[in-house]
């Protein structure tokens, strides 16, 4: 991140879909650092056609890595989706007890000690990225992996390696890492450098350049949620389309 900072950073992630090859490294790295139980995916990689919005058309197949279209006119692209950390987040608005909240840096977090488990946020999220602890979770054998400690922001418990049952969880932008100047683990893990993280308040940062001049787009911009995750569209022109 750039050295020059305004008082509060505005954390933004840019995902370059030109670079994403759908290897799921970010998703697995996320599972590891956050000790996600078996079956939980805070971060997942959708198989899409290039530059399709996520509601454009029904899937070509129920399986991942299946190209869209008919041979030889096949198309394949990937869309990694985790919490979009919206500035006008529906989950924050609907939470009856303010357990889900937005920090000044734009990060949307959940207080595990306050959540009553009503799951209204899961109904309200347009991206379907929230996961509920329905019962006692099954963890991969070998004990806690990753960060492995509780993390508090103020008096809010926003991460704990083994989640209590009956609360909602999701991507935290690796709040415990970004607070000490490290990158979210998916950004660090991506072998293709498709994920760029930084401070939008810093005009010289790479994310400012990509969001302001690089054509960064939000998911479902029409819903007005104003996410802090931006996607760089696939630059290649589709043959036959202007």
């Amino acid at each position: 991140m750039a050295a020059k900072k305004t008082s509060v950073p505005h954390h933004v992630m840019v995902i370059d879909t030109n670079r994403c090859v759908g290897c799921w490294t970010c998703a697995v790295a996320c599972k590891q650092v956050n000790n996600e139980p078996l079956g939980y995916w805070w971060n997942r990689v959708l198989t899409t056609a290039p530059n399709q919005s996520t509601s454009a058309k029904p899937p070509a197949s129920d399986n991942i890595d299946v190209p869209f279209g008919t041979y030889p006119d096949l198309e394949l692209a990937y869309l990694p989706v985790a919490c979009q950390h919206c500035n006008d987040a529906p989950c924050v608005k609907v939470c009856p007890v303010q357990a889900t909240f937005r920090r000044d840096d734009g990060t949307v977090l959940i207080d595990f000690n306050r959540c009553i488990g009503c799951r209204y946020c899961m109904a309200a999220c347009p991206y379907g990225v929230r996961i509920f602890n329905w019962g006692d979770s099954t963890y991969a054998p070998g004990g806690v992996v990753g960060y492995g400690k509780e993390y508090w922001t103020g008096d809010r418990l926003v991460f704990t390696p083994e989640r209590p049952k009956g609360v909602v969880e999701k991507c935290t932008f690796c709040v415990e890492r970004i607070d000490v100047g490290e990158l979210p683990f998916c950004v660090e893990a991506c072998p293709l450098g498709a994920r760029i993280f930084g401070d939008l308040n810093d005009p010289d940062s790479q994310v400012s350049e990509l969001v302001n001049n690089g054509g960064g787009e939000q998911l479902h911009p029409e819903l007005g949620t104003d996410p802090n995750v931006y996607y760089l569209p696939v630059a290649r022109r589709v043959p036959g389309e202007s």
């Binding site: 139980p37 078996l38 079956g39 939980y40 995916w41 997942r44 959708l46 198989t47 899409t48 399709q52 996520t54 509601s55 454009a56 058309k57 029904p58 899937p59 197949s61 129920d62 399986n63 991942i64 890595d65 299946v66 869309l79 989706v81 999220c125 347009p126 991206y127 379907g128 996961i131 509920f132 602890n133 329905w134 099954t138």
Partner: peptide, 13 residues
């Protein structure tokens, strides 16, 4: 919500 594979995580193993 998202009509692309692999769909939404179910959160159970």
């Amino acid at each position: 919500l998202t009509q692309y594979p692999p769909g939404n995580a179910v959160g159970t193993y």
